[in-house]
């Protein structure tokens, strides 16, 4: 190579590409500066400057937590956990068939059924559970049932999406092997596909349950039951010492649910 005396040059990018990358950076940084200025112009700086004092003030009023109030929280807390758990179970039951209809390798029809399944998934995912809650409280009235369905509708898309991606990633040879024995469609699903997606199924369900515990704590804000109702009531009467008890209750519930979900996921994978 070096024999003819010419130095061989290697560059990561061509000159034109190099310029393009620089232009991209310039554009990005300018956009950031522009946005920064717009936001700054629309901010009341007096309030921002005052924020640490206000926060300290509220923090001050939160302590000591009013521990006696905790006794009244067991009921709403139990509701919250039930909303999350029942909502998750319902959503998993509904999401599983949808996932099979949405996965390219198991859907009965890529032209008609799959788009429909994907539409269900997208619409479920694009609406936050608080908004589902708002809608459902209006439709079926305030309470735990609205909360359960809000969680269900929000979770279907999440669970179905992760599940159908898992179905599309299975080892197709195992499916071939089972089909080659003369097994029927149901047997192919239960013998060849289900064992392969079981870890994803369990992991996704528990992960979603963990998320739902957190989401269901705020559902009460729109009247869909649970500990959020108490939170809103306490904030409305500026009972900061009760608010701090509620926040602590939520925190400990979330910690427990994360611990459970980590344990379960570890066990199945």
């Amino acid at each position: 190579m070096a024999g003819d005396g010419e130095l061989l040059v290697w560059r990561r990018r061509t000159r034109a590409r190099e310029l393009l990358v620089w232009a991209g950076w310039l554009l990005g940084v300018s956009l950031f500066i522009f946005c920064w200025q717009t936001i700054a112009a629309n901010t009341t700086w007096y309030f921002v400057a005052d924020a640490p004092r206000v926060a300290a003030d509220i923090g001050d009023r939160m302590v000591p937590p009013k521990w006696s109030y905790a006794a009244k929280l067991w009921g709403p807390l139990w509701d919250t956990i039930n909303i999350a758990t029942l909502g998750t179970i319902l959503s998993v039951l509904l999401a599983t068939p949808i996932a099979f209809l949405a996965a390219t390798n198991t859907t009965p029809s890529t032209r008609f059924v799959r788009p429909l399944a994907l539409l269900i998934i997208v619409s479920s995912r694009s609406i936050n559970s608080l908004i589902w809650g708002l809608l459902l409280v209006t439709i079926i009235g305030p309470g735990v049932v609205a909360g359960i369905f809000a969680i269900t509708f929000r979770s279907i898309g999440f669970v179905a999406k992760l599940l159908y991606e898992a179905i599309e990633e299975i080892d197709q040879r195992q499916v071939e092997a089972i089909a080659a024995t003369g097994a029927n469609g149901g047997q192919v699903i239960t013998f060849a596909i289900w064992p392969q997606i079981l870890p994803a199924f369990a992991g996704t369900s528990v992960f979603r349950w963990d998320i739902n515990i957190r989401e269901s704590t705020v559902l009460g804000l729109v009247g869909a039951g649970g500990i959020g109702l108490e939170l809103q009531a306490s904030i409305n009467i500026v009972a900061w010492q009760q608010v701090s008890v509620i926040l602590l209750a939520i925190l400990s519930t979330v910690i427990v649910s994360e611990w459970v979900s980590a344990k379960v996921r570890h066990a199945v994978i």
Binding site: R173, Q174, E176, A177, I178, A180, T181, N184, F191, Q196
Partner: peptide, 24 residues
């Protein structure tokens, strides 16, 4: 049918894999 990469159902037991030959 016998396969190159065996194509067993990895998460099922040996017995379940053998019995799956009778699914038909």
């Amino acid at each position: 049918m016998i396969f190159q990469e065996y194509a067993l159902i990895e998460r099922l037991t040996v017995m379940e894999n053998v019995l799956s030959g009778q699914l038909g």
